[in-house]
Deep mutational scan, measured.
Amino acid sequence: QTIHNGDQTYHYDNPEEAIKVAQKLAKIYNLTVTVKGNTVQVH
């Protein structure tokens, strides 16, 4: 599972963990989380 947060990319073995982290980032920075296959984008 990969999270793209602007210019930063994070890799997680656990998809659920990746989505949790993405949602935390989204709340902190007031962003949107988009899940596309194995990629979670925060923008």
Rank of each mutant, 00 (worst) to 15 (best):
Tyr29Thr: 07
Val40Leu: 06
Asp13Met: 09
Ile19Gln: 13
Ile3Gln: 10
Asp7Gln: 11
Tyr10Asn: 01
Asp13Gln: 11
Lys36Leu: 13
Asn5Phe: 14
Ile28Leu: 13
Tyr12Lys: 01
Pro15Val: 09
Glu17Ser: 06
Thr32Phe: 10
Asn38Val: 05
Gln8Ile: 14
Asp13Tyr: 04
Tyr12Ser: 02
Lys20Met: 10
Ala26Phe: 07
Gln41Asn: 07
Glu17Arg: 06
Thr39Asp: 04
Pro15Leu: 07
Lys24Glu: 09
Lys24Met: 15
Thr39Leu: 06
Gln41Thr: 15
Thr32Asn: 09
Lys24Ile: 15
Asn30Gln: 07
Asn30Pro: 02
Glu17Tyr: 07
Lys27Leu: 14
Thr39Met: 10
Gln23Lys: 12
Leu25Ser: 00
Gly6Ile: 10
Glu16Met: 07
Ala26Pro: 01
Lys27Trp: 11
Pro15Ser: 06
Lys24Cys: 15
Pro15Gln: 08
Thr39Glu: 05
Leu31Phe: 07
Pro15Lys: 06
Lys36Met: 13
Asn38Leu: 05
His4Val: 09
Thr9Cys: 15
Tyr29Trp: 09
Val40Ala: 01
Leu31Met: 07
Ala26Met: 14
Thr9Lys: 05
Lys20Gly: 03
Gln23Met: 13
Lys27Met: 13
Leu25Val: 01
His4Ala: 09
Glu16Asn: 06
Glu17Gly: 02
Val35Ala: 02
Lys36Tyr: 11
Gln1Asn: 10
Tyr12Gly: 01
Val21Tyr: 10
Lys20Leu: 12
Val35Ser: 02
Ile19Tyr: 13
His43Pro: 02
His43Gly: 03
Asn14Pro: 03
Lys27Val: 07
Tyr12Pro: 01
Thr32Arg: 07
Val42Asn: 00
Lys24Asn: 07
Lys27Gly: 06
Lys20Phe: 12
Thr34Ser: 08
Glu16Gly: 06
Thr34Cys: 12
Ala18Asn: 00
Val40Pro: 00
His43Trp: 11
Leu25Gly: 00
Thr32His: 11
Asn5Pro: 11
Thr39Tyr: 06
Thr32Tyr: 09
Asn30Thr: 05
Gly37Cys: 15
Leu31Cys: 14
Ala22Arg: 01
Thr32Lys: 09
Gln41Asp: 02
Val42Thr: 02
Ile28Arg: 09
Ala18Ser: 01
His4Ser: 09
Ile19Lys: 12
Asn14Ala: 04
Gln41Gly: 02
Leu31Ala: 06
Thr34Pro: 00
Lys36Glu: 10
Ala26Asn: 06
Asp7Ser: 14
Ile28Lys: 11
His4Glu: 09
Leu31Trp: 10
Ala22Phe: 05
Val35Tyr: 03
Asn38Lys: 05
Tyr29Gln: 06
Ile3Tyr: 08
Thr39Phe: 05
Asn38Cys: 15
Val33Glu: 00
His11Ile: 14
Leu31Thr: 05
Val33Gln: 00
Gln8Arg: 15
Pro15His: 14
Val42Arg: 01
Gln23Tyr: 09
Lys24Val: 13
Asp13Ile: 07
Gly37Lys: 02
His43Ala: 04
Gln1His: 12
Lys20Ala: 13
Gly37Met: 03
Tyr10Ala: 02
Glu16Tyr: 09
Ile19Ala: 10
Tyr12Glu: 01
His4Ile: 10
Gln8Gly: 07
Gly37Arg: 02
Gln23Ile: 13
Val42His: 01
Gln8Glu: 08
Val21Thr: 05
Tyr10Phe: 11
Leu25Glu: 00
Lys24Ala: 13
Glu17Pro: 00
Lys20Asn: 06
Thr32Gln: 09
Asn30Ile: 05
Gln8Ser: 10
Asn14Phe: 04
Glu16Gln: 08
Lys24Pro: 00
Asn38Met: 05
Asn5Val: 13
Ala18Thr: 01
Asn14Gln: 03
His11Glu: 08
Lys27Glu: 12
Asp7Tyr: 15
Thr32Leu: 11
His43Gln: 05
Leu25Ala: 01
Tyr10Glu: 01
Glu16Pro: 02
His4Pro: 09
Val42Trp: 03
Thr39Lys: 04
His11Asp: 04
His4Thr: 08
Gln8Pro: 05
Asn14Cys: 10
Val35Trp: 02
Thr32Ala: 07
Ile3Met: 11
His11Tyr: 14
Thr32Ile: 13
Val40Asp: 00
Gly6Val: 10
Val35Met: 02
Pro15Trp: 10
Thr9Ser: 06
Thr32Gly: 03
His43Asp: 02
Gln23Asn: 08
Thr9His: 06
Tyr10Thr: 02
Thr32Cys: 15
Val35Thr: 02
Ala22Gly: 05
Asp13Lys: 14
Ile28Gln: 09
Ile28Gly: 02
Lys20Val: 05
Gly6Met: 11
Thr39Asn: 04
Thr34Val: 08
